[in-house]
């Protein structure tokens, strides 16, 4: 068995880097499609942490939770892309900062 050639810390650093890059994308991109892509990056970063700790503690729980996260990500993409297409078909400009009609 491969034991621990790579410490958990390395996985956590990669995961954190992916999460932060995704967060940056969510905050600075204005195309809703790009924001959805960046959200996928954040979810993947979180999944690496879940699976990493799952191995760390020798339980399957983290992997199970990672699978649930994937399902939620799939549902989120379906709804998000549905919204993007709905906005597009009404000939609106795809710019998140202009979609302010629901602002309180």
């Amino acid at each position: 068995m491969s034991g621990s050639g790579v410490p958990l810390l390395a996985y956590l650093l990669v995961s954190g880097a992916m999460f932060l890059i995704g967060l940056l994308g969510v905050m600075i991109r204005r195309n809703p499609l790009m924001v959805l892509l960046a959200v996928e990056l954040m979810l993947n970063g979180a999944n690496v942490t879940l699976v990493g700790f799952s191995r760390f503690w020798d339980t399957t729980d983290g992997q199970t939770f990672a699978l649930v996260v994937m399902v939620v990500a799939a549902a989120e993409v379906v709804i998000g892309l549905g919204l993007v297409v709905a906005v597009y078909r009404q000939r609106l400009r795809l710019n998140i900062d202009e979609m302010t009609r629901l602002r309180g």
Binding site: A74, A75, E76, V78, G82, V85
Partner: peptide
Amino acid sequence: VLLVAAVGAVLLAKRA
């Protein structure tokens, strides 16, 4: 969650 997402996607497409 999957069921709600599927129904939601259909509703969005139908309204459009």
